[in-house]
Design a protein around this nucleic acid. Structure first.
Length: 129
RNA sequence: GCUACAAGCCGGGCUAUCGCUUUCUCGCCUUAGGCGGGAGGGAGGAAAGUCCGGACAGCAUAGAGCAAUGCACCGGUGAAGAGCCGGGCCCCGCUCCACGGAUCGGGGACAGACAGUGCCACAGAAAAUAACUGUCCCGCCUACCGGCGGGAUGAGGGUGAAAAUGUGAGGUAAGAGCUCACGGCUUAUAAUGGUAACAUUAUUCGCGGGUAAACCUUGCAUGCUGAAAUGCCACAUAUAGUACCGGUAAGAGCUGCUCGCUCGGGUCCCGGGUAACCGGGUGCGGUACGGGGUAGGCAGAUUGAUCCCAACAGCAAUGUUGAGGACAGAUAAAUGAUAGUCUUAUUCGCCUUGCUUAGGCUUCGGCGGACGAAACAAAAUCCGGCUUACAGGCUUGUAGCUUCU
RNA sequence: GGUCCUGUGGCCGAGUGGCUAGGCAGAGCUCUGCAAAAGCUCCUACAGCAGUUCGAAUCUGCUCGGGACCU
């Protein structure tokens, strides 16, 4: 039986090129403390959902705090992305998502969990329709 | 026992569930490879600031001078340093004191101001050559005060951060290190101690401020650039165009400049010439700008001047020897999330004990509850230092207070 | 990761080691029937801590903040 709540190398945005494309051509939306960029590309051979997150140096000067926010975001995404992933695979397309944290204070885990959940549901509606 | 200061050390542990990264290994699937299981490793004392010094890499390198930058008491240490250790000298503070100093603690970018130049606001006669005021003597004028001229002198002149070696005596027309005595500072020599810086003593030459973290002088050191360096593989592509130059060489590099040196002299055609070579063309090359592609992987890159322990050498920094053990490698960037629990700190209540007339206060011990790891902070090629940030705890030393014997 | 520049009132911005210019903004006053304009006055500064110097915005070291460049 395959693992459910994974977030390995293949599920993360790692290519500089893809990120460039995402920032240039991707669509934007805002959910509370996050600004979310996403890019859906047509039917492909290996359907996948890749994810990335980032925090501005201007809002969090210390590397410790930036790491903290990114880790919380990754954790919340990892536990909730399952439904979206299945639907993307059914529709045979490829979706890149990038979460940018725009808040200025360190968030609590519960809040992060809630907001990423609503963001994922919104994405589902927008992309798989 | 408490408080303060200084130095050194530590700066969470365990369990469950879901995950990340890496190494090894096993199984399954049709190769590349993919999927799944198991075992092991996975941030710091500062990983930070990037302030010094290296290792390492690339480029360059016949050499010389100037410039630039950095350093600056002595010795040791080390790969090296603006680091560290020890010593000297100077300054500050406390205490003691026979007022000369001495102990202890702290600090010091600590070569040179008789090589030269600059600057020193305000105040003050003057900020360094001297002038001014003043003092004294002589001559002339004048009834006197005084004025003018010539000479001597550098002591006094309320300032200032700083004023031409301090005190006393002699000396003189008045004075002056002009002379003398006791000091202070300084140059040189000698002796003694010390590896040396330096210290002490004796003799001797002198005594015209400060500033070199002002320019500078002296001595020493330094080629430049930094892993976004660099090498290889894969993918992709176009070198289109512009400027300058190429037989008197252009140009590039060495180091910023100068000398000097090194690289750099292509091909073909035509004409001249025996040839070397000369002229023209073709196109080629060089440099600068610009254009296009890729932005994936591997190496560099994680075991090294490493850390811990013991013995020995040394005052110490440190070194030598021995034994066993430990040591992360991410790359849109891993070491996390949730829940529980353990001690530690904090805090509340009750009991006991002590003080007190009481109110109340409080040491030690015990029980129960609340909160519950919570400071500073995240490796990015790697080391040695420095600096800065830091909740709480432990150890040692010093000082003060208190209790008991 | 590396290399460098910079910090002066609320804002902009000058300042060879000797009382920190100037403009804009703000407040008050004069002028006016009321305003505007003009004039006068006031307010608020050398990022911080040490050192050198008689004296530091300036020189030196460290710290903090802001910015630029290198693939």
């Amino acid at each position: 039986m395959a693992k459910q709540f994974t977030l390995g190398k293949k599920e993360r945005l790692k290519s500089r090129k893809l990120i460039g494309q995402l920032f240039e051509h991707g669509k934007k939306m805002v959910v509370a403390p996050y600004r979310i960029l996403y890019l859906l590309s047509g039917p492909v051979e290996h359907p996948s959902l890749v994810f990335g997150t980032g925090v501005s140096v201007k809002n969090f000067k210390k590397a410790v705090d930036r790491n903290r926010v990114k880790r919380l975001t990754r954790e919340a995404y990892r536990l909730q992305k399952k439904e979206l992933e299945e639907k993307i695979k059914k529709s045979k397309s490829q979706l890149s998502v990038f979460f940018i944290y725009t808040g200025k204070e360190l968030p609590e885990y519960d809040e992060v969990y809630k907001q990423t959940g609503t963001a994922l549901k919104k994405l589902e509606k927008l992309t798989v329709s």
